[in-house]
């Protein structure tokens, strides 16, 4: 199973999935937006500008999560030489890249009214920019290199190297003094977001995750069709 896979059989499932995912995404996004923009309260200090958080934080989470998955798959590609993993990685990257850009842009929009600046070269923001750069280099190298063996190798190496940056993004606010505030949602310690604000944050995260899944499935189907058109029934 790890060595080969049947594009035809996978395609049977993945070609039907997008419309259900799209349907679910629209529902979850609508609930999330209503919660985030109308039902959730304003913040005691930031008042309404806190609402940018419901887009900013999920985008950052998703872009970090997707990069971690790509890196993990790339490690597996290196060990098991599995070609399906490289297709999955390739199909995951675009939505991760888009979300890293959204996180940077909404961060700037949020920073202006709260901190008083669009941009600061602090550790969190700079490492997030580096993540976006790694995404773009990763996506570009899929386009630039023609040789099939070569392109898989190069993109995997970029993803594995880029993973060094992931814990730096995550923990930069704890390790160094930064302008960016520390993380509010923690697994081990207490969460410092009030439940009325945590719920829309969770729903928006689910919506963005569904969007990533949708884009992934569409891209993955394209890749499978490409393989089918080449007349190969297996990789």
């Amino acid at each position: 199973m790890l060595k080969s896979f049947e594009p035809n059989q996978i395609f049977l499932i993945t070609s039907r999935a997008p419309k259900y995912v799209l349907f679910l995404f629209i529902i979850v996004l609508s609930i999330g937006l209503i919660e985030a923009l109308i039902l959730s309260p304003e913040d005691y200090k930031q008042s309404h500008s806190v609402r940018i958080m419901y887009v900013h934080v999920p985008s950052a989470w998703i872009s970090l999560g997707i990069f971690s998955i790509i890196s993990f798959l790339s490690l597996s590609i290196f060990v098991f030489k599995n070609k399906n993993f490289s297709l999955i990685s390739k199909s995951l990257a675009p939505s991760g890249f888009v979300f890293s850009i959204i996180a940077l842009v909404t961060g700037a929009i949020w920073g202006k009214p709260t901190w008083g600046t669009w941009w600061a070269w602090d550790a969190r923001i700079t490492s997030m920019l580096i993540l976006a750069l790694f995404y773009s280099i990763y996506l570009l190298s899929w386009r630039i290199f023609e040789n099939k063996e070569q392109v898989i190798k190069i993109t995997s190496i970029i993803a594995i190297l880029g993973f060094i940056n992931v814990p730096i993004v995550k923990f930069s606010v704890d390790w160094w003094s930064t302008l960016h505030q520390a993380s509010s949602v923690n697994i081990l310690s207490k969460t410092s977001i009030h439940p009325t604000m945590l719920i829309p944050l969770a729903i928006m995260t689910a919506a963005f995750a569904l969007f990533s899944l949708l884009i992934f499935l569409m891209k993955y189907n394209t890749e499978l069709i490409k393989i089918k058109n080449k007349g190969l029934d297996r990789l």
Binding site: P41, D43, Y44, W115, A182, S184, H194, T196
Partner: peptide, 18 residues
């Protein structure tokens, strides 16, 4: 020459703060 506000990681509605 420049002042930036640094806010903390706590988010809550005004009533809760009060």
């Amino acid at each position: 020459v420049k002042i930036l506000a640094k806010h903390d990681e706590n988010y809550m509605p005004p009533e809760v703060k009060k």
